[in-house]
Write a protein that binds this DNA or RNA. Structure first.
Lengths: 205, 205
DNA sequence: ATATTGAACGATTTGTTGATTATTCAGGGC
DNA sequence: GCCCTGAATAATCAACAAATCGTTCAATAT
């Protein structure tokens, strides 16, 4: 059992190396097999297929980045709004840095998202759970006046989608993006209306 | 001069017919020329190229849709927040309806956006100007407390980007999209914070 | 029995060729 | 002079063949 896991690790390491260095399309199963001193057929005892190896690599990166975000929850000296702001900015900066440092891993994520739409939702959910906890903290401190943190987290994700799709912002500079994100953050946190308690017009549909 | 314009119209009409019926790729300049009783070479006296004909068709559609949005400015009986909401929902519904009724025109827009990134910004600006005027009205009525409508309009566009990229929401139903848009709208208009006047933490970059 | 191999198979990609098409422009008609 | 044509040109596309690659599985090794 533990040997099986070790072999999986070896495969993942070899694959990450090749995927990030040469790209997903340019690395063959035969090469991975050679890297791991085994036959190509044997790889299929550890993973259902090539895409699943890539998926596991991206899943780990996603978990890592959600974990990094969790650090914000341990900052009780900052106020609730600032923690939200940190969350949004850290997320943007990480994505942007990844894109600049290694476009290949972002490309990987895009390939998987194209074939496995559910994978992307899974990553979104991981981040949303952290976000919801940040919002809950805000509610507990009396800073935020919302009733459903999970739902509000969903809405914040929708409102900041522009800042999490690398494909959408390749042509924008990080500086421009940060200025926009700051504007959206302020809108979200303070709203537009004078004085401002929540108002809820009837849905028209 | 007016004859030149008339011919341009004829070409645009013929092109719109073919582009929306058979698609951009499947219509040839020779066909367009035949439709207009002229030689293919002569088309180039009226347009620099095929893509420019498509661009003009899309530009007009964009202007039309911005004009439709302008109608909201003439509804003084509604309150400012409701006008903003109408703007966002009308925009989403129009895009969605266009996608369902004639995917070809959306496809056209995508082709042009791919080759001419500026074209898309131009359309965004048209809508943003209407949005800014809606915000100004809100300020005048004392409903919105913002200092820079043009900039706020930009931020609202960033926050609602998810709802204007057909490529992003092909897999979502209109109902789901409207529920999300409603959530984002409420966030934008009322904000998160208890009591709520604008708060402005220092930029960290 | 279990773990592993590598040849075989089908799907996908790549490369090549021929045809189609956008665009240009020298020339003919007004 | 100015319009306009249509053949010439160059760029793009489509179709087909060859090669490569992911995946499977009968055979082999442990």
């Amino acid at each position: 059992m533990t040997l099986l896991d070790e072999t999986r690790e070896k495969i993942i390491d070899a694959a990450r190396e090749r995927f990030t260095h040469y790209g997903y399309g340019k690395t063959t199963m035969a090469e991975l097999a050679r890297d791991c001193d085994m036959s190509s057929g044997n790889l299929y005892r550890f993973f259902p297929g090539k895409l699943d190896i890539a998926e596991e690599i991206c899943r780990r990166a996603s978990i890592q980045s959600a974990d990094d975000l969790t650090y914000i929850l341990t900052c009780p000296e900052r106020d609730a709004a600032t923690r939200l702001r940190d969350f949004l900015f850290q997320d943007l900066r990480e994505t942007f840095a990844a894109l600049e440092k290694n476009p290949r891993i972002v490309e990987l994520a895009q390939i998987i998202t194209a074939e496995r739409p559910e994978f992307h939702n899974e990553g979104l959910k991981r981040e949303r759970d952290v976000l919801a906890r940040i919002l809950e903290m805000g509610v507990e401190e009396g800073a935020f006046s919302i009733t459903n943190p999970q739902e509000t987290a969903e809405m914040i994700q929708a409102a900041t989608m522009k800042f999490s799709y690398p494909q959408l912002f390749t042509r924008l500079t990080l500086d421009k993006l940060e200025r926009e994100l700051d504007g959206v953050y302020q809108l979200i946190v303070a709203g537009l209306v004078q004085g401002a308690r929540r108002l809820t017009p009837k849905l028209t549909h």
